[in-house]
């Protein structure tokens, strides 16, 4: 074997040296500025017309706790209803059947196209359109008795959420490679089984981050149900400040509770993401 040729002169050996730390002047400066601004805002609020003792007293008041529990119950139920509707509508939208396709597109168009608060008011006031509702010959009731604030909020929030969720789920299904569907067919699976066993589990991975987003949106959207007398946390906070006029203090109480709930939801989403990331290199066993 020939010896390696001699290396050229003029290129010193740098292997012992390390790269110096950069000063990052701008980072320090901007951090200092932000601290200053925050301190100014904090000082303004501390000296403003806020009785902080009211905040701490009402933070754990029974009515407020009941309110946040109602908020969570409504958010979870309406989201579950919305996801169920969303999956069904997404499957309809991607079906080869033109009737199902059109119905699905029409649903999304109608409920995405009108404000949520308007839909809540419509559900709540359904009695104005149909004084009695029921199944002819079997059962009937006065609509005012059936359409409680709870049911109106659940229908309004859930059906509206379904319209948005269907688009999220559809995007997830479209992200799965066509070859997966063909491979499922090739081992004899029908359309629905292939969707349930092969396509949807893979779509979930893509769908969970935007769904987490939607759920956080839902927690806050329940506050709109205060206009139809559903006793969620904002509604109850309002009732208290109508009596004692501590408006800002009670709004801060409600705000703190929303922040707490949303802070708990974020790590939960991470856990779900891991569950559905099975088989991807990142989380493979």
């Amino acid at each position: 074997m020939k010896p390696a040729p001699a290396l050229a002169e003029g290129f010193p050996d740098l292997s012992g040296m390390r790269i110096a730390r950069e000063p990052h002047w701008f980072r320090w400066l901007s951090a200092a500025l932000i601290v200053l601004v925050l301190a100014a805002i904090g000082r303004a609020f501390a000296g403003g017309q806020i009785e902080w003792s009211y905040v701490s007293r009402f933070l754990t008041a029974k009515v407020i706790i009941e309110g946040i529990v109602n908020t969570m119950v409504m958010a979870v139920l309406a989201m579950a209803f919305g996801i169920f509707l969303g999956v069904v509508v997404a499957i309809m939208r991607l079906s080869p059947n033109p009737v199902l396709k059109t119905v699905a597109a029409g649903y999304t168009w109608l409920f995405r196209g009108t404000p949520l608060i308007l839909q809540l008011l419509l559900w709540f006031n359904l009695a104005l359109v149909f004084p009695t509702i029921g199944i002819p010959g079997l059962w009937s009731a006065r609509a005012v008795d059936v359409m409680t604030p709870f049911l109106a909020a659940l229908l309004g929030l859930g059906i509206n959420q379904g319209a948005y969720t269907s688009e999220v789920v559809r995007a997830g299904m479209l992200s799965v490679d066509m070859g997966q569907y063909e491979a499922a067919q090739a081992i004899g699976m029908g359309r629905l089984r292939a969707l349930r066993r092969i396509i949807l589990p893979q779509a979930m991975r893509v769908v969970i981050p935007p769904l987490g987003n939607e759920f956080i949106g839902m927690v806050k959207a329940t506050s709109l149900a205060s206009v139809i007398q559903y006793p969620e946390v904002l509604h109850n906070a309002e009732n208290i400040y109508y009596a004692n006029s501590r408006v800002i203090e009670l709004l801060i109480v409600a705000g703190l509770w929303y922040l707490l709930v949303v802070s708990i939801l974020t790590p939960l989403q991470m856990l779900l993401e891991r569950r559905f990331a099975r088989g991807t290199l990142q989380f493979a066993r």
Binding site: G179, Q180, E182, A183, A184, A186, I198, Q202, R205, R278
Partner: peptide, 13 residues
């Protein structure tokens, strides 16, 4: 029939 695809199409999950 059994089908083997160019791009394998194994179920990744």
């Amino acid at each position: 029939t059994g089908m083997v695809f160019q791009r394998f199409n194994l179920f990744p999950h």
